[in-house]
């Protein structure tokens, strides 16, 4: 068999920022979780913050590691955003924030049924509603990827805002304004929780599900087989064909 025709999906800059981001994000999630230590909270149990703090030489160093990596993460992102605004960032935001409700809701319902029950059951379940058992064609990103990306972007903004309040409260907040810090902790936790849920699905789809294996490989090589693009991102494929 001759090697399949490949098409470009990710730039090297995009691949870099994705893996850089993912590495920082994991670090921040696991150090952040260990920064919570309270008899009434302890999301993973009291052993977890204890063990991680011991590894970092104490809670104070863990706190420094958390905000230091967060600042580095943010600095790299700021550079990337300015440097790649027109080439990478604007097109990415364009494709992630363009939803077409009718098509995309259908896709979300069907894809979820298909992923958990299979094509046959999905076709049976949506058949009576007038759907034909197929999934609506998708653009460069499918509806699930778009929603996940939107959630992650908004979650990241909330995490940055609340993180800044906590980190810099000592410099610009008076004793009467500490309620802002208190709510920042709570909201930071919620944003981290919600994005973690999104990322669980993201990582399953990208790294474990067989159907998206070509997309996973493309996050290293930059290219996907044309055949995959045609079936998984038909609208994108057709757009490329027209060019």
């Amino acid at each position: 068999m001759s090697s399949p025709k490949m098409i470009q999906r990710h730039t090297r800059a995009g691949i870099f920022i994705h893996w850089f981001n993912a590495a920082c994000w994991f670090f921040l999630l696991f150090t952040g979780l260990a920064l919570i230590q309270n008899p009434g909270l302890n999301p993973l149990g009291a052993w977890y913050p204890g063990a991680v703090r011991a590894g970092f030489g104490g809670g104070a160093y863990l706190l420094v590691a958390h905000w230091l990596v967060a600042l580095i993460w943010l600095a790299v992102w700021v550079v990337y955003l300015f440097w790649g605004m027109s080439r990478f960032v604007a097109p990415f935001l364009n494709s992630t924030f363009s939803l077409e409700p009718n098509r995309d809701i259908q896709w979300m319902i069907k894809k979820n049924l298909q992923m958990t029950l299979g094509y046959k059951m999905m076709a049976k379940l949506v058949g009576p509603l007038g759907y034909d058992g197929h999934l609506p064609p998708q653009e460069y990103y499918n509806a699930g990827q778009k929603l996940a990306a939107q959630g992650i972007i908004m979650g990241a903004l909330v995490l940055i805002g609340t993180g800044f309040i906590m980190l810099f409260s000592k410099y610009f907040l008076g004793a009467a304004d500490t309620w802002l810090v208190q709510w920042s902790i709570t909201v930071h936790f919620i944003a981290a929780g919600v994005t973690t849920a999104l990322l669980m699905v993201h990582i399953y789809m990208a790294a474990i599900s067989k159907e998206e294996r070509p997309a996973f490989i493309s996050m290293f090589t930059g290219t996907v087989p044309a055949e995959y693009a045609k079936h998984h991102h038909q609208l994108w494929y057709e757009e490329l064909e027209e060019k």
């Binding site: 919570i36 104070a60 706190l63 420094v64």
Partner: peptide, 29 residues
């Protein structure tokens, strides 16, 4: 101690004094 989210305020097991780890305290109040 019950209100401190980070564990910066804790009761020392060695002598029962309630102490604040200033490096870990984020000043939330």
């Amino acid at each position: 101690v019950s209100a401190c989210p980070t564990g910066a305020t804790y009761k020392s097991k060695a002598d029962g004094v309630v102490v604040i780890d200033r490096g870990l305290c984020i000043g939330c109040g």
